[in-house]
Amino acid sequence: MGIFDYFKSKNAPTSASVAKDRLQIIVAHERTKRCQPDYLPQMQQEIIDVIRKYVNIGSEDVQIQLDNTDDCSILELNVTLPE
């Protein structure tokens, strides 16, 4: 630690810790996607098409997620319907 360091802000996170935080988030996100089966995007599209027959929704109004726990998989479907 040199004398100039005393003038620097003590609270600002270092750029390396920012990098680590960003990486941990993006890597975790990409790993969950990696474990998803290949059919998921297509299934999502077909679900959207079915709902669209009855309600006018955009493709971003449907969130689909597959979570794997030890012995079961949960398919979570979240549809935001217009008012």
Binding site: T14, A16, A19, K20, L23, Q24
Partner: peptide, 16 residues
Amino acid sequence: RVALGEMLSVSDVEDI
């Protein structure tokens, strides 16, 4: 640069 907090450390990369 790691000591200055400008570069990811060995343990940072190992953690990730």
